[in-house]
């Protein structure tokens, strides 16, 4: 009978949904009850996550401390905001100037320097603006006056902030057809730069990991002091916000600056790219 069959199908769907949702929740229940596993929210930037370094470090930390780390990879601005609002337990970011106000307001504590990688100016191998050397400011100025195309992330990320600060120090407000703002992540922005045969400021790590897909793009400017991209790890202050997992947050900070972790950081990427993506840099 059509009606009975119809009803049985509906029932089957209902049961299926119950089953899946039940499973979903029971799974979570068992995860919390059986092992008393705690969870730690780490706010970091997409570019940090994109390098793959965390994929190596986080599982180690989770195993050693029986913690479930929830890595929220967002823009620098949002990562800092999550810390400031007490929505994350620990931060791993690379915008020292923007981090300072949080330290001053005591929203974060126990801030430790972890490592650095560097920013580089990448461009088409034809190098239409004939840029060279290691001074990024000179290069920016020359490129801008020559009206050569530059691609900016324009997403308020750490890299974007770095770029904006260089323009600011030159007293230039970049605009016009030769200045393209993508509003996207580093990977996508690099792709766009490659398509447009334009210059782009990027972190070395992302460039190295993407290089194969960016035909004809090469490093134009590197090594200047202005181009250092320093990473800090810090705890969100449990005294200022509720529900902070400060115990595991402290463990995470200690973990990041520990000798063992630093060795891993120093070697990360060597095998795949021929050079390390990060340089250990503790205080």
């Amino acid at each position: 009978m059509v009606k009975n069959r119809f009803l049985s199908v509906v029932m089957a769907l209902v049961l299926m949904a119950f089953f899946t949702s039940g499973q979903l929740f029971s799974q979570k229940a068992s995860a919390t009850s059986s092992s008393k596993q705690t969870s730690l929210i780490l706010a970091t930037t997409t570019s940090t996550q994109d390098t793959g370094l965390l994929d190596v470090l986080i599982p180690m930390f989770e195993k050693e401390n029986n913690v479930k780390v929830k890595t929220i990879a967002v823009g620098t601005g949002q990562a800092l905001a999550l810390g400031q609002k007490g929505e994350a337990d620990v931060l791993l970011v690379h915008a020292p100037q923007s981090e300072q106000p949080l330290v001053d307001s005591k929203d974060v504590i126990n801030r430790k320097r972890v490592m650095y990688n560097d920013f580089i100016l990448v461009g088409p191998s034809s190098n239409p603006a004939h840029l060279s050397g290691s001074d990024i400011k000179t290069a920016f100025k020359k490129m801008y006056t020559a009206k050569k195309t530059f691609v900016s992330r324009g997403d308020d990320s750490g890299t974007d902030k770095k770029e904006k600060s260089i323009w600011q120090s030159l007293n230039i407000k970049p605009s016009g057809a030769s200045y393209i703002s993508t509003g996207q992540g580093m990977g996508a922005t690099l792709q766009i730069a490659a398509q447009k045969k334009a210059y782009v400021l990027t972190d070395r790590g992302t460039f190295l990991s993407q290089k194969k897909k960016l035909g004809g793009m090469k490093i134009i400017i590197e090594g200047g002091k202005d181009l250092m991209n320093i990473y800090h790890v810090m705890q969100v202050n449990p005294a200022k916000h509720k529900m902070i997992n400060s115990k595991d947050a402290k463990k995470f900070v200690d973990f990041m600056v520990s000798k063992k972790t630093q060795t891993i950081i120093g070697n990360f990427g060597k095998k795949e790219y021929g050079q390390a993506l990060f340089i250990k840099y503790t205080e």
């Binding site: 997409t46 994109d50 994929d55 479930k68 929830k70 890595t71 929220i72 990879a73 996207q184 992540g185 580093m186 990977g187 996508a188 690099l190 792709q191 990991s209 993407q210 897909k213 960016l214």
Partner: peptide, 22 residues
């Protein structure tokens, strides 16, 4: 939050992989 093994679903991983350029 696109957390690996926890809240990463197909659409969010697509966004992530695109942003990585993959």
């Amino acid at each position: 939050g696109n957390i690996q093994g926890d809240t990463r679903i197909l659409t969010t991983s697509i966004v992530m992989e695109v942003s990585k350029g993959n």
